[in-house]
């Protein structure tokens, strides 16, 4: 079969100890049976490792942070499109999704396809809306409250037992054992992501995650559950294994069917000692461990691109149980000349 040639731009090349999904997404695309891809990296920072991975990324462009405004952001994407003729963009950061969702139509008019949740889906599953979300779809969620100031911290003892989780709007979650620690985490999080900060009941149990893909019509195209086996001190999975928990897959399918979820997603779930499943968070994008799903037989990045370009995609029926990922770090050798080129021209 002749593979279809596509140019695909990918963000999230920060394959660091808090990895973005860009590199694993690209690996999935590189292994595609359907596509022969030219990969354009979109980088926010000049030391994102993916920029320097020449086997994976054909060319990288720097892009401005979404916080600098959609105008500057879109201008840059349009410039890149004029050079590279992009077919598809796969954004991989929570913080940039809003801007991409808003720009979806404008990008489509230029011929650049995305496959993202709708703004309603995106807002509905926001961390601060999780209690409502749980209620609406009949899923257990930990009790949580949104706070915006120090004053709220003192009142937390009315609703919470310590320890509790302190979470940022987009990223970051810290466990706090007392109000002093909450203040500490509150400061850290607001400096980075602003208010509100979400305080969440801490549920004891086993952390399990599902990476999934919805086609926007209610069908689950792919769903692979994983249990974290090794967790870094930043709370990131550094090793994990696919598991055959049918309840998890059923829960995922129910969610996708009812929300008509469009695009990639990650469900973070805690299974407590009574075998109850608590939905902790829904990430509205492909997670960094997606390559495990590829390895287990469900090439989610590939399926997402096929949906983006309007192909009819049949749901994956199975995945291999007991596939493991073991993350490792690896030192590449770069040169100041690469850094110079990226810094001075914004391209490499």
């Amino acid at each position: 079969m002749k593979k279809k040639k596509l140019t695909i731009a990918v963000t999230g090349l920060n394959n660091t100890d808090n990895p973005g999904p860009g590199v694993p997404v690209i690996r999935g695309l590189r292994e595609s049976e359907y596509f022969d891809v030219r990969v354009i990296g979109l980088a926010y920072e000049n030391l994102e490792p993916g920029i320097y991975m020449k086997d994976l990324v054909d060319k990288t462009y720097q892009i401005p942070y979404p916080s600098s405004g959609s105008e500057a952001f879109l201008d840059r994407i349009k410039y890149i499109h004029s050079k590279e003729n992009l077919d598809v963009i796969i954004p991989n950061f929570d913080a940039e999704l809003y801007s991409f969702i808003k720009a979806e139509k404008e990008l489509a008019d230029l011929g650049v396809r995305t496959f993202l949740p709708t703004l309603e889906q995106f807002d509905e599953r926001a961390k601060s809306n999780l209690p409502k979300f749980g209620e609406k779809y009949g899923i257990k969620v930990p009790f949580s409250k949104t706070i915006t100031s120090y004053a709220d911290i003192n009142n937390l003892r009315n609703n919470f037992d310590y320890p509790l989780l302190v979470k940022g709007k987009f990223y970051d979650a810290y466990l706090a054992y007392n109000p002093e620690q909450v203040i500490n985490h509150f400061n850290k999080i607001t400096a980075k992501w602003g208010v509100p900060v979400i305080i969440q009941e801490f549920i004891r149990g086993t952390e399990v995650n599902v990476v999934a893909l919805g086609d926007g019509k209610g069908n689950t195209i792919a769903a692979v559950p994983m249990r974290k086996q090794y967790i870094t001190d930043k709370g990131k999975a550094w090793g994990g294994i696919t598991i055959g928990d049918e309840n998890l897959v059923a829960l995922t399918k129910k969610l996708i069917a009812e929300t008509k979820w469009r695009g990639g997603m990650e469900l973070e779930i805690i299974k407590n000692v009574n075998n109850e499943y608590y939905l902790i968070e829904i990430n509205p994008r492909i997670p960094a461990w997606v390559y495990l799903a590829v390895g287990a037989g469900q090439n989610i990045p590939e399926a997402l691109v096929r949906l983006a370009i309007g192909e009819n995609v049949q749901p994956y029926k199975s995945y291999d149980i007991g596939k493991m990922f073991i993350r490792y770090s690896y030192d590449m050798i770069g040169d100041i000349s690469q850094f110079e080129k990226l810094s001075m021209t914004g391209e490499l």
Binding site: Y44, E45, N46, Q62, P64, Y65, S68, D75, G346, E347
Partner: peptide, 12 residues
């Protein structure tokens, strides 16, 4: 390093 740099992008 680790700080986005608009230098090369000729931001208007």
């Amino acid at each position: 390093a680790g700080v986005p740099d608009k230098f090369g992008m000729n931001t208007k």
